[in-house]
Computed example of a mutant assay.
Amino acid sequence: MRVLLKDILDCPPDAAWRALRSPAVFREVSSPVVSVESRGADGFPTVWEPGEHPVGLNALGLVPMGEQVIRLTMETTRKDGVRILRDTGRGVSGALASVTLWDHRMAVAPDPAGTGKTLFRDQLIFRTGALTLAGWPVFWALWQWRMRQLKRLAPTWQLDLGVDLPADLLAEADASATADADAVSRVTE
């Protein structure tokens, strides 16, 4: 089965991309419907990296749903500027172990209307054997909640110089800041 959502987020694409790679944002957009705890030895990283990340999930923070492995890959080199975060993880225990296929892709691109905002696409393809059809309304409702949370949070996402800017733009920003500082010091001497 498939759940597919598309909307415009009120933030620049670089800020949206950074937010998608944040475990804190992942937890916030899922909350309070699903609470997520890291099962990794060092807890959640500051920024998701490609690879496997074990987690435990609870419905409404109370009912254990089981454990799953989030398996992330990132595609950032497309010529059209689209960046994709993909999770092809798997359920390990509890109700999550019934999920036999999990392919979740989130894509970030500049708004085609040229607003400076982000075109966000979110697709989940899943299978749970005989329960797939029954599971679709649950996943659909959860994805609606997540999109609502993403839209609510997006205007608060800011760029972080040095993290979000490509190296060439960062070098230009550093050169400009150094020139400004030199000019100020000459004036104050």
Rank of each mutant, 00 (worst) to 15 (best):
F126V: 01
T115W: 02
V29H: 07
A181E: 12
A41M: 11
L5Q: 13
L131G: 06
A19I: 09
V47A: 10
M106A: 05
C11A: 14
A181D: 11
L169K: 15
V69Y: 01
L101N: 04
P12A: 14
Q123V: 15
T46M: 08
G135I: 04
L9S: 00
V63M: 13
P64E: 03
T100Q: 13
A24F: 00
L62E: 03
S38K: 06
G56Y: 09
G81F: 06
F139S: 05
K117A: 15
K151A: 06
R148P: 08
G61Y: 08
F44H: 00
S98Q: 09
G116M: 03
H53Y: 14
I84A: 01
V82W: 01
T73Q: 07
M147V: 12
G116K: 04
E75G: 12
G116S: 03
R78V: 05
G135W: 06
G40Q: 13
P54D: 06
A171M: 09
V99E: 01
N58W: 12
A173G: 02
V55I: 15
T88G: 13
T88V: 12
V69Q: 04
W17S: 05
T178I: 07
F139C: 05
P54V: 07
D174V: 14
M106R: 04
G135H: 02
L161F: 12
H53S: 06
V82L: 07
G91V: 01
G129A: 03
F120W: 08
E189W: 08
R90H: 12
E67L: 04
Q158G: 09
Q149V: 05
I125P: 01
F26K: 02
D14L: 14
T118M: 10
F26N: 05
E37A: 14
E49P: 04
V36D: 01
R186D: 09
V184D: 13
V55T: 09
G89E: 02
T115P: 00
A167Q: 10
A95H: 10
H104A: 01
V187H: 10
I70Y: 09
D7L: 06
D103F: 01
E37Y: 04
F44P: 00
E172I: 13
V33H: 13
S38F: 07
K79T: 14
R90Y: 13
I125N: 11
P166V: 00
K151Q: 08
G129H: 04
P64L: 04
D14N: 11
D42F: 08
E67T: 15
V33Y: 10
G89W: 03
R27C: 15
D122V: 07
L170K: 06
L124P: 00
V187R: 15
A177R: 15
V99S: 01
R78P: 02
A154I: 05
G135R: 03
L159F: 06
V184P: 05
I84R: 00
M74A: 09
D42A: 15
A154Y: 07
G135C: 10
T88W: 02
T76L: 06
R148T: 14
E172Y: 11
A141S: 14
E49T: 13
L169I: 08
F120I: 07
A109C: 06
T118L: 08
M65W: 03
W48Q: 00
L96C: 09
R71W: 09
L96G: 10
R18A: 09
L133S: 12
G66Y: 03
N58L: 11
P110V: 03
D122G: 06
E67M: 06
T118Y: 08
D122H: 08
